[in-house]
Amino acid sequence: MNGAAIATGADTAAGDGRAAGGIGPDGFASTGGAALWGRQVGGIVRLELGKVLFSRRALIGWGLAAAPVLLLGTRMLAILLFGGLDEAGRLPTIIEEEQVYAQVYQTLIMRLCLYFGCAAIFLGLIRGEVNDRALHYYLLAPLKREVLIAGKFVGGLVGAFTLFSLSTLLTRLLMLAFAPADAARAMFSAPWLTHTLMYLGITFLACLGYGAVFLAVGVARVNPIIPTLILFGLESVNIFLPAVLKQLSVVYYLTSLCPVPLDLGPIAIVATPVAAPVAILGLIALAGALLAWSMRRSRRLEVDYGEE
């Protein structure tokens, strides 16, 4: 049925080539399958990046990405201006800085900035279009709903990772400011370089995981504020959750991957990290399941801008 429909679609539009400057048959149907889907995803990502990176709405993302850079930058300036950590003017070592960075990354970047940044970006993929009353342009385009959702997700992912990888990279570079003499050496020696790559990886997985969560919330077309706050609460108390629920928490996997564990004191016993491969696969599986659900659900997506 479907195959026949596509074939007639191609026939129907076959004449367009002439109007389109003699570019052969209908550009939509001529190459089906993966190549077509790739172009469609590319087309969506094009539009999405403009919104995620260069629109008024993008200010939230940029702000959240800039916050940790500003915080660490201010701290660095303060230490340098006020002459170090103690009377002797000692500057923190790179090992000490790793501990500070782990604090900043896990509490500020991972739990706050990435969480709310992804909320803003990925909720915007569907909900933002409803607010702009522009969702129908996507729903009317000749593409499968599943591809539409995939394209939106990829667009959000590329946008979010651009913002937050920049943020991660800049905060990591700030660490080196205390060791100007040693910076070059520190940069290319473990653990700075490997840790930086690991943090970038975690940032990517965070965008993937949170992104899938918020895409699903957006596709479900419920008021996002309540789920966003509830999830935020759950993610915050994540280490106290029972094992089953933990596995459904994005932070659980991300924390397990962090190269420098936080000094949690007495509650450290409840925080049992999982092995890195398990964490990565767990996160991908979680994101994949949510994405699959969103795709399925999207077939029922209807325009509803409220009564006109």
């Binding site: 479907n2 429909a5 596509i6 679609g9 129907t12 539009a13 209908d26 939509f28 149907a29 539009l47 403009g50 919104k51 629109s55 008024r56 279009e129 702009d132 009353r133 522009a134 129908h136 342009y137 729903l139 009317l140 385009a141 000749p142 593409l143 499968k144 709903r145 539409l148 077939r299 801008y305 006109e308």
Partner: peptide, 23 residues
Amino acid sequence: VDDAEGLGRRVGYCTQVDSFPPG
């Protein structure tokens, strides 16, 4: 009508909604 792709190729719809993606 649940074949969004097939329908999209055959139908061009100029809606009553007077709004556009910003910018």
